[in-house]
Design a protein around this nucleic acid. Sequence first.
DNA 1: TATTGTTATACTCTATAACTATA
DNA 2: TATAGTTATAGAGTATAACAATA
Lengths: 151, 151
Amino acid sequence: MAADNTDDALVDGLVRSAFQVMGVLTRVGAEYDLSLTQLRVLGIVRDRQPRMSDLAAFLGLDKSTLSGLIDRAERRGLLARGPSPDDKRAVVVLITDAGHELTQRLYAEVQDALAPATARLAPEQRHTLAQLLESVVSLPLQLKSRPATRR
Amino acid sequence: MAADNTDDALVDGLVRSAFQVMGVLTRVGAEYDLSLTQLRVLGIVRDRQPRMSDLAAFLGLDKSTLSGLIDRAERRGLLARGPSPDDKRAVVVLITDAGHELTQRLYAEVQDALAPATARLAPEQRHTLAQLLESVVSLPLQLKSRPATRR
DNA sequence: TATTGTTATACTCTATAACTATA
DNA sequence: TATAGTTATAGAGTATAACAATA
């Protein structure tokens, strides 16, 4: 509840860097007519085949929202829907070849767009920052595209 | 163009932490029926009286988008419009008392919501992270709510 | 009965284009 | 002529509610 100056500065830095990164992602996405959410979906589905409901939960969106999102990406040939092997109600989301190519291009551009910002740091500072962010980023949200171990 | 593993990890950390922070902001905002953008506007207008066009430029939005945004916030009594002293075409955005109170509550909640994540770091690590983020966050976008020095 | 996904509906966010008033 | 802001319009993103199919 109580917060000292360091915490203020940290929260401020996290929030401001977040807005900056989102600005970059928004701009890069816009070049390809992709929203932030579409971009994120592509990044997630890039190496997973989640079910609609899992993806919705991971993104914090309603399933109905996801239906529309996937509809539009599917209409553009970036994603596809497929049947789930173990549940006839379920639908899994798949990335197409075109979607995969686009995603790779997209993420390379994000890296380039972020370079001017990260270049302000010395190599060992970049390393430190990467490590600290890794610690801060929570991993509680996990996509169980393949139930790893049933307990 | 070429990017090594550290850069990959850094960009990944920046992007993931950005999505995490945005998730927190979205959730906190949603408690008060405020979008991310509304939240951001409140944070900016908190200690500034920008003109509509300056605010739009800062946020990277079209002026027409801002008209709607301010309309809705004004309808809720959080913001108000006022005349610009030096330009009869211009409109300045003002925060109301209610808006100010809400903003303070909001930002305290964001701090609390982010605490579990930042608490994973030791105090001196928090300090380091705050400093590194400060270096990374660019300040090229400046709101000239009061033209500091005309040149 | 509960869960998965879709559809209908409504509101916010967003941009483009056309317009008014002022510079 | 150019800039500041609003309005009309349209598409995307979002949630709620109601529904069909499957568990």
